[in-house]
Design a protein around this nucleic acid. Structure first.
Lengths: 194, 194
DNA sequence: GACGGCGTAATGAGGTTCTCGTCCATTTCC
DNA sequence: GGAAATGGACGAGAACCTCATTACGCCGTC
């Protein structure tokens, strides 16, 4: 499920392979159930959109499909942590597919191909750090809705925490990690039941 | 012509060398698996179309054949150059799909999802520069075989050229670019005939 | 071999839907 | 609060759908 629960005409246009203007046509013809912002822009609930796609036999984009499969990418420069995280999260979320990256660059490459629903991201990495990765993800249309769970060893660095929250991190944990908590947070974000 | 994932009746008609009206006949006869836009126009997914072609022993049109598919990513921080390159390369290599990135980070994300066969890479970019991108691509199993065409404004900086060649760039060009040459190099690397 | 019936494809007119480009307002991000 | 991205309105033109009509090849029959 997407991070946002409402779509703009542009989002819908992209999914339907149509121009935004066409989407506006549909709206004006009453074919799409939308509401408007005070400023007069159209918004549509994901749930409504999925119903619409189904009714019109439109192919459903994978990232909106409510399928149970969940992909999670764990990024940390410490291989031991990666191994531990894979095992622990796999335990708590047996239906999830978990992959790992050892640095920010590799994470970006992998996010593009693996298209995870959520990323568990160490903020303190050499070279390309987590904060930068966050920013890139949020800046990119395709990856904007990926959930980000940030992790840092410097629990007390409130400045960092605040900065990262501002970038748009969905959850924050301090090392050492309690994977049960992390899994719980992920489940909540990804709306996985059980 | 950009490679979309859905076709209109006109697209199908062109590929099958019939008139659009005939395609509509096929659709109404249930021979083509299509869906319709709210406005009542037919759309067909490329995947379905290829299946249909195969079942009916239709020859697969060049530009849809997976064997002839060529994807090229152009990376430069100058939007004007991106526009120019897209147009020029599109001209010389009409069957190729061309996408662009304005910086190194976005390039990594896009390489992951777009999986280009070749990357045209400006070496001099702010923040994450082209040389670093090269190194990452060559270090990663998945991206190791992507062809890299490096581009730089500093033609005379032989040190840079040598360094980049060492990283494993396949071709090098100095700005300003002669796109015909670039296209020729790409065709040779990608083994595109004609 | 000529003929008509049948199914499929092409043609053309008329109205609708979609795209594209421009301009301006809204929203988002820092 | 300001800059940049995103979205909405609008008009021109291309693409598309419907429907009626015509053209073509295939078949069996006379």
């Amino acid at each position: 499920m997407a991070r946002r629960s409402s779509l703009s005409t542009g989002d819908i246009a992209r999914h339907c392979q149509v121009t935004p203007a066409t989407v506006v046509n549909w709206i004006k013809a009453g074919k799409l159930k939308v509401y408007t912002t005070p400023g007069g822009q159209y918004r549509m609930e994901v749930k409504e959109f999925l119903k619409f796609l189904d009714e019109n036999k439109f192919p459903v984009p994978e990232e909106l499909s409510p399928a149970n499969e969940r992909r999670i990418l764990v990024v940390d420069d410490d291989q031991q942590i990666l191994d531990l995280a894979t095992e622990a999260l796999g335990e708590y979320m047996p239906s999830a597919t978990i992959e790992t990256s050892a640095d920010g660059y590799d994470a970006l490459l992998k996010i593009g191909s693996f298209k995870p629903h959520a990323v568990v991201l160490d903020l303190m990495m050499p070279r390309l750090d987590g904060a930068e990765v966050c920013r890139r993800l949020r800046a990119n249309q395709e990856t904007r809705n990926i959930f980000i769970v940030a992790v840092s060893g410097l629990a007390t660095d409130n400045e960092l925490v605040r900065k990262v929250k501002r970038i748009g991190v969905d959850e924050f944990f301090a090392k050492p990690l309690n994977y049960e908590d992390v899994a719980k947070a992920l489940k909540k974000l990804l709306k996985v039941v059980g």
